[in-house]
Nucleic acid binder design. Structure first.
Length: 637
DNA sequence: CAACTATACA
């Protein structure tokens, strides 16, 4: 009869004899003073005043027994838990699923998944709680494949997954980027009534988002009737993580309009979206909002602000916030180092990197090295880049990824060391991707290496035949070396394949409103003033000896027309608009969907000198920080 | 027993 003690239903009164037995068991396992203190404190904490608190606090009840175990879970008192487990085994107090669930939970929480698994495997009967607790352990700490195996095992075992199981299984799918299984889980959910459950839907949204299917995520999101902040956050993060920051920002507005208050998670996701969209005014607004709520004291929010300010050109502000962090985590260091790197402050980036390793004793990861290598890159530091690469591999035993190789190829290409770059590519342990060939092609463009440029383009076309930018780049290489027929042939090849050059577009955000400009755009209400300003500046520039360089325009058109096309490049329109709409001295940030052309680069340098303004252009792949006639890229980009 | 939150090459 004893084994049945522990499987009595919770509300059934225990027999006096059972109670005595349990009490003895419990007391004998809690002999040490520390354990006792721990347990008492934890038990007190886990029984808040409630209608049945008298039951929980009664020392002889089954509730007390389970609550002691519960408190072990809460305080991770492995010792006490193991003793209890031992006693249970010795006394033949058998397999009660409630107690087993708590033990499995305890072992998993203390990192002893093996123990948890053995206990689980030994249970003759498994209910949904037991499955969930074990799946949770694997869904949280991995290996995630096991979580999915268990989910499948549970179905085979005949236990129906519930509203707790699905989010866990989906979390594992998300971690593995296993879209196929994710869809399978979704299918199953649709066959039940759990499709209405907010937790399950949040799990689905997140799973689709992590697997890159934002629109599937949105479809699930749209069908949810009542949405709490977490579901909104999941969807906002979905856009942010999939390169659609503008939609993330607008969804945050929708969330507020729907009366759901932003939480710290909302702000972190949205601020990071603002960073990616280089939407500084919006980011500052969010910063202010977080400040009023007192969220900005939290390191996670502050780190997202570090990233946002750095990406919006305010590296110094980012640094101040970085210094204010209570504890500088790896991500914070990475954000700051990459922030310096992308603006060309390679000396600051390297100083910070050393501070991180030596003073703060934080171990860098592969992302840190991407930042450091790209910083070397922007500074043209070949020797240092190689050294850091060696440091990464030899000292930190970090396996280089294709991104690290891309940085090296890029720095070598910039320096015109094509043989080394090409050898490096040939010796890479992985297949070179489009980034690698793109970096090489970029170097070829700078040094007018037509031969290797052709090869790189060949590879690029194989890898991404749909990308018109590749054709444009090669055509520019030809044009720069005066090979006009070849330039035209590439252009023709491009049109024959039905590819269109992406139209250049730049935007600038002023007072929370985004103003976008296309090439030759005359649609802006202040268009006349914008062109007037450009003309005024051109006059001042030719006084300074500026001659337009029309080389990059590869169309077969007359010089005058080329000039006109150049002078109405979208970034110039955006800058002119910024100049006439802001007080003198205001820093301008312009974002562009393509690369800045050579002539615009020269022009913007001159403008920054003439009007004495800091102008930041955020290219499709880097920043140009123009101050007093100089650019942070030192004309290498 | 459950869902969301920062960093990265070209």
């Amino acid at each position: 009869m004893l084994p049945s003690i522990l499987s009595k239903s919770r509300n059934e009164p225990l027999l006096a004899r059972d109670r005595r037995r349990l009490c003895r068991l419990l007391c004998s396992s809690l002999r040490t003073a520390t354990d006792l203190q721990l347990t008492n404190a934890a038990a007190a904490a886990s029984s808040p005043p409630s209608s049945n608190s008298h039951i929980a606090s009664s020392p002889n009840s089954y509730h007390h027994y389970t609550s002691v175990l519960q408190s072990c879970v809460a305080s991770r008192s492995l010792g006490t838990g193991r003793q209890l487990h031992g006693r249970l085994l010795v006394s033949g107090l058998g397999p009660d699923t409630v107690l087993a669930t708590k033990l499995v939970d305890l072992y998993a929480a203390c990192g002893l998944v093996g123990h948890a698994r053995r206990l689980f495997d030994g249970m003759p009967k498994r209910n949904v709680f037991l499955w969930n607790v074990l799946i949770r352990a694997y869904a949280r700490d991995g290996p995630h494949e096991v979580a999915i195996q268990l989910y499948r095992g549970m179905v085979d075992y005949g236990v129906e997954p519930d509203n707790f199981t699905y989010p866990l299984a989906l979390k594992a799918c998300a971690a593995l980027l296993d879209l196929e299984t994710g869809r399978e889980v979704h299918e199953r959910v649709l066959g039940t009534h759990w499709g209405e459950d907010m937790f399950v839907c949040a799990g689905l949204v997140d799973m689709y988002a992590k697997c890159g299917c934002v629109d599937d995520a949105r479809a699930v999101f749209d069908r949810i009737r009542v949405r709490d902040s977490v579901v909104w956050n999941s969807m906002i993060a979905a856009y942010g993580q999939n390169g659609r920051p503008m939609e993330a920002l607008s969804l945050c507005r929708d969330m507020a309009a729907n009366g759901v208050g932003p939480t710290i998670a909302t702000l972190v996701s949205t601020i990071s979206a603002a960073a990616d969209a280089a939407a500084l005014p919006r980011g500052r607004e969010l910063h202010g909002f977080g400040w009023r709520r007192g969220f900005d004291r939290q390191d996670k929010l502050k780190t997202s602000l570090v990233d946002m300010y750095a990406k919006s050109g305010w590296v110094q502000v980012a640094r101040v916030l970085f210094e204010q962090l209570m504890k500088r985590e790896l991500v914070s260091w990475n954000a700051m180092i990459c922030g310096y790197g992308m603006h060309g402050h390679f000396d600051e980036a390297l100083k910070l990197f050393n501070k991180m390793r030596v003073e703060a004793q934080v171990t860098p990861d592969n992302i840190t090295f991407v930042g450091v290598l790209s910083a070397c890159n922007h500074g043209g530091m070949v020797k240092e880049a190689k050294e850091f690469f060696g440091l990464m591999v030899d000292v930190y035993s970090i396996k280089p990824t294709v991104q690290h190789f891309t940085c090296l190829v890029d720095v070598l290409g910039h320096a015109g060391r094509f043989e080394e770059a090409y050898d490096l590519i040939k010796g890479m342990p992985m297949q070179p991707d489009s980034g690698i060939w793109g970096a090489l092609l970029n170097g070829c463009k700078i040094h007018k290496n037509v031969e290797l440029g052709e090869l790189a383009l060949q590879k690029l076309i194989e890898l991404e035949p749909e990308d018109a930018g590749n054709y444009v780049l090669l055509s520019n290489i030809y044009a720069q070396s005066g090979k006009w027929e070849k330039a035209a042939r590439v252009r023709k090849l491009m049109t024959n394949r039905g590819l269109k050059k992406i139209i250049g577009c730049s935007w600038i955000e002023l007072k929370g409103k985004t103003h976008g400009f296309l090439v030759g755009d005359a649609s802006h209400p202040r268009s006349a003033e914008i062109y007037e300003e450009l003309e005024r500046l051109e006059g001042l520039m030719s006084d300074a000896g500026y001659m337009p360089d029309t080389m990059p325009v590869f169309h077969d058109v007359g010089d005058d027309e080329k000039r006109n096309m150049m002078r109405s490049h979208s970034e110039r329109l955006a800058i002119a608009f910024g100049l006439i709409s802001t007080p003198s001295g205001t820093k301008l940030l312009v974002t562009k969907n393509l690369r800045v052309c050579e002539d615009c680069h020269v022009v913007i340098k001159l403008i920054s000198q003439i009007v004495q303004r800091e102008i930041i252009i955020r290219d499709v792949n880097r920043y140009h920080h123009f101050v007093n006639g100089e650019c942070s890229c030192k004309d290498y980009w």
